[in-house]
Design a protein around this nucleic acid. Sequence first.
DNA 1: ACATTAAGTGATT
DNA 2: AATCACTTAATGT
Length: 217
Amino acid sequence: MSAQEKIIREKLSDYYSTVFEKELIEEIVEVGFIDKFKAGETLIDIGENMTHIPLILDGAVKIIRQEKEGDELVLYFLEKGDTCAVSFINCINRKKSIFKGVVENDVEAIFVPVEKIDDWLAKYKTWRYFIIDSYHFRLIEMVESIDGLAFMNMNQRLLKYLTDKAKINKDINIEITHQQIAKDLNTSRVVITRLLKQLHNDGKVFSTRNKVKVLDF
DNA sequence: ACATTAAGTGATT
DNA sequence: AATCACTTAATGT
């Protein structure tokens, strides 16, 4: 057994042993490989073909919907133990990605070739449940995101965005510019500046240049 | 000291 | 809530 295989086996049993049966883990060890990505790297872009599916071990990925150039909106984050079930369906249909995935925190993940996904769905009950479960969870996050757009004002959306981000980073100190926040929420910088000042005065955040500290949880 | 980038603000739609 | 036009503050070289 190679050192790489050993590592995969260990990592898998750390996060997925209770979920997957032994035979499945063996298959993953056989065809999967570990890869790492630095924050800011684009994992997948809209329109690209997916060749591998990530099982995230560490870090976080920001999932973005993008409309042509410039117009974009952050939908949700993927974390440890997550996978993007939406990408599975993309793969099975041999379609191109409908989302963009950018690394939020340095990511370590096991990558599994697309061809296996389908096989395993028929072969392993645990894999089937894993996929359905994951798909369900993504759907809920998506609905939350729609709710945000439909029923929440920018003020609430901003606060949710900041608390979500603090949770993902496990740090209430966020390093970000008003401009970047505006981009993620698909609004203008001026609006963020003003709302952030409101939140600051309300004692919900403490913000300085390039930094926002989330005080209200 | 100067240039660049980030943030704050009033007025208007 | 968005946009414009402009000011002020912080930071890098």
